[in-house]
Amino acid sequence: MESTFAIARREFRTFFGSPIAYIVLGGFLLLAGWLYFSTLFLAGQASLRGFFAAVPVLFVVLVPAITMRALAEERKSGTLELLLTLPMEDWQIVAGKFLAALGMVAAGLVWTFPYALTVAALTGPGTAFDWGPVLAGYLGLLLLAASFIGLGLWGSALSRNQIVGFIVGLVLCFAFAFVDAFAALLPESLGQVLQYLSVNYHFDNIARGVLDTRDLLFYVSLTAVGLLLTTKTLSSARQ
């Protein structure tokens, strides 16, 4: 456990020591802020609905951008040999990388709290602001990010090239975000399967404030699959 945290800490610090962090998170916050304020001012509505609808789409790009270098860079610079001869299991390395990436996403999300606070402040005096959906929304975002991180890490583990890692991650995240786009055109049974596979579908459930174990289970499973594939790919470097 200690080794995993050490990996995570190093990764986190390195990320924030590089300009990429500020470009990627800055871009994310700019877009998220623009989407939020446009609903606030253009629609004249103090609501987080637009924000929560947009962030999952932004994550499709943000998460692979965060995870792309995690393992590709270790391969490229040769430090993978150092890492793989330290006394820990391969999955502990992956777990460390996962925690770091989740921390990076969380560090970006923290800066969106002011939006929620503004909405709360703007809510009419008589009506109490309902924090339930907001907290559920943030929880949903973290779960969604976790599952994307699993996919992104796998992309990063596949080659020594960060760009390849980014593109593979992007394609996978995109697929899981929009897999249900054609659900309406398909026979109902198939449509339901696609819907179940969609991370956005489960996110919408959670963001509505309904915490269902089926949605949680979906995210946990998708994250686990991503991390298992990452671990397998990482271990294959030992061949």
């Binding site: 200690e2 040769g78 430090t79 040999e81 001869t85 006394p87």
Partner: peptide, 27 residues
């Protein structure tokens, strides 16, 4: 203790931070 052939190191880290990191991972 292993010194690999081309001695890969985390370039962006300070020497002391790197050694601290190794000490942590090695518990």
């Amino acid at each position: 203790g292993y010194l690999p052939e081309n001695n890969p190191l985390y370039e962006e880290m300070m020497v002391v931070d790197f050694l601290r990191f190794i000490a942590e991972v090695r518990q």
